[in-house]
């Protein structure tokens, strides 16, 4: 059973080509790398290949690791790049609609012009949460790579804005706009599904 090592100790041992440190690294990061790869590629086979390539690349490239970022960020970056390479090989997904088009229609006065259903408050027997979980997974796979990578790092993995910007080499502004649009897209997909399932009529009070 491998012990958990501190990052600097782990890096030093890996740089000295210590293969037992590689085992410790895998124990520490394999689940995160696989999980991230799975969400980014949306495909188990691709995620498996990414997992293997990442640890090999980490071991091969660790000599050049200067500690400018955290070890975890560096590994996430390698994982993200490897996963995005897989996505780029697939047929391109169409662009998603603009933020304004993903929100409710507005009147000329800037007020909401259509009913909005609050499906977040529906009990489980009216809207199955498990089904909703499957829907968001499908919707995530519809997101173009640029949006998906941001949503996965921030909302799925829960990384900080700074870390996500660093991993994706994005400005804060670019990250914000992609994340917001990505969330709006997912929300719309879930809303369409929720309304189709429950047939909830929000009534005039929601207009």
């Amino acid at each position: 059973m491998a012990v958990t090592l501190q990052d600097d100790e782990l890096i030093a041992k890996l740089q000295a080509r210590d293969e037992s440190a590689l085992e410790a690294l895998m124990v520490q990061y394999q689940a995160r790398v696989f999980g991230l790869a799975l969400r980014l590629t949306g495909n188990r086979q691709d995620a498996e290949e990414v997992l293997q390539d990442v640890f090999l690349a980490v071991f091969q490239k660790i000599g050049g690791f200067r500690g400018d970022s955290k070890l975890s960020s560096w590994i996430y970056r390698i994982t993200t790049n490897a996963a995005l390479m897989k996505l780029r090989k697939r047929p391109k997904v169409k662009e998603i609609p603009l933020a304004e088009e993903l929100g409710p229609a507005m009147t000329d006065e800037g007020m909401i012009a259509e009913p909005v259903v609050d499906w977040s408050r529906l009990p489980n027997d009216e809207l199955d949460r498990k089904e909703l979980g499957q829907r968001i997974e499908q919707a995530m796979n519809l997101l173009p790579a640029d949006y998906r990578s941001v949503v996965v790092l921030r909302d799925v993995e829960g990384l900080s804005e700074q870390e996500a910007c660093e991993i994706l080499s994005l400005s804060e502004a670019a990250l914000k706009s992609r994340l917001h649009r990505g969330r709006l897209f997912l929300r719309k997909q879930l809303a369409d599904y929720a309304v189709s399932q429950t047939g909830v009529n929000p009534g005039p009070q929601h207009v």
Binding site: V117, S120, D155, E157, R183, R187
Partner: peptide, 19 residues
């Protein structure tokens, strides 16, 4: 309703985290 469902979308995304 829009804000609640926006936040709910973020929560559901986070539940996709695979450990």
């Amino acid at each position: 309703a829009f804000i609640n469902t926006y936040k709910q979308t973020m929560r559901l995304s986070h539940e996709l985290r695979c450990d």
